[in-house]
Design a protein around this nucleic acid. Sequence first.
DNA 1: AACAAATGTGGCAACAATGTGGCAATTACA
DNA 2: TGTAATTGCCACATTGTTGCCACATTTGTT
Lengths: 232, 232
Amino acid sequence: MLKRIAIVEDEAAIRENYADVLRVQGYQVQTFANRESACKAFAISLPHLVILDIGLEQEYDGGFTLCQWLRNISTTLPIIFLTARDNDVDTVSGLRIGADDYLTKDISLPHLSARIAALFRRQEALKQPTAESSLLTLGPLTIDNQRMSIVWQQQSVDLTITEFWMVFALAKNPGHVKNRQQLMKDSNIYVDDSTITSHVKRIRKKFNQIDKDFNCIETVYGMGYRWNKDEK
Amino acid sequence: MLKRIAIVEDEAAIRENYADVLRVQGYQVQTFANRESACKAFAISLPHLVILDIGLEQEYDGGFTLCQWLRNISTTLPIIFLTARDNDVDTVSGLRIGADDYLTKDISLPHLSARIAALFRRQEALKQPTAESSLLTLGPLTIDNQRMSIVWQQQSVDLTITEFWMVFALAKNPGHVKNRQQLMKDSNIYVDDSTITSHVKRIRKKFNQIDKDFNCIETVYGMGYRWNKDEK
DNA sequence: AACAAATGTGGCAACAATGTGGCAATTACA
DNA sequence: TGTAATTGCCACATTGTTGCCACATTTGTT
């Protein structure tokens, strides 16, 4: 899938230079000289990544404003600031308002494209459903699919296979209620309802041996069970 | 929730300096001087973010090796390289093998923590979309089918299954009157008319405990009940 | 205003779902 | 082959939910 990158930068020379390089890398690039034209285009369709200059024509902080505006629309859109100013105040405030990266214009082009690739990589990696990635972290809970190991507060919990799958099924969608049928399916067992109760009992017991305040597996009367990440 | 950050850096002074600063920021920090000790700890439980130096004791490229090893385990774990070397080759190869950021040691500490916060922000933002799926929002009311939870004005309402289905049946078609028979059907119960009255009573009571002015469930004399979204 | 019908209220007993301990059957493993 | 671990299930205890009733109150009608 072709990635679209938008560059918002008022100096035409720089803008086109970057655009050309990125096009060669195989990206589809849109360029804008000011906030207004960028906004207009973004309102219709968002790109996959935005590169912003801070100062845009008349607007001294146009890039910041645009960044905030974009963050409002999408919390996930990767935003990179690319600017001549090299001072910490700008960097920190740029990152504060939701930028993902902050680079100065003296960086090399390979460096820039490496950063872009890293951002996309991260984006893709996190897009994978939790089931695929081998590691799932949920507060004090860490589940390693490949090794079938579960860790609670740095301590390994010694679960059996069935118990492991049940915890995994619950933790995969924290907060979502799973009824007994769904839990059976996710754990690859097909048993009596009461058996699910038994498994939950044993799982809780094992977690409680590590942390006596453990109560993340919440019973939802008449509905099933749910992993409650807010409780301790 | 407390975020855990691991720092792998062989120079004790630098290591502890960063660790202290991050601890003040409210992070839980683990420090390691070499690859071996870090690996050992990571095998048990991964932190939420790793800060790596490239050169580690004897190993000139220990950080790179460690980064690759970590990427194998988790594709999503945020990794930041923090190093004295300031050359593009290193930066680019660092990012290539899966680092998320590459910073030189001369950056200011506020800058570092801004970067860390930005990475965590991104992490959280991308985690969201999975959660938002089957939501029904009606002014101050939010119904989440998967979580089987009902929220009124930011506060969760603790309903039983039958009550949940009844609220759902009413809120599904706001303003539309449902008679007792329809409510029974929608809630998968078949009972006396008076029982529906009882359920409505209990539902109103629970909402009233949160908001004493609640009156969205309107009685339509002789007809049934209706969810009135205009009333408060 | 008087009346009947419909709805609201508090409470309680029946019931259903879940928790608990334990045991037998099965499986894994040395 | 014997032993330990795992698993499914049962009987019983405990808890939360539900349906309904008697009675109060409201509503609409004559």
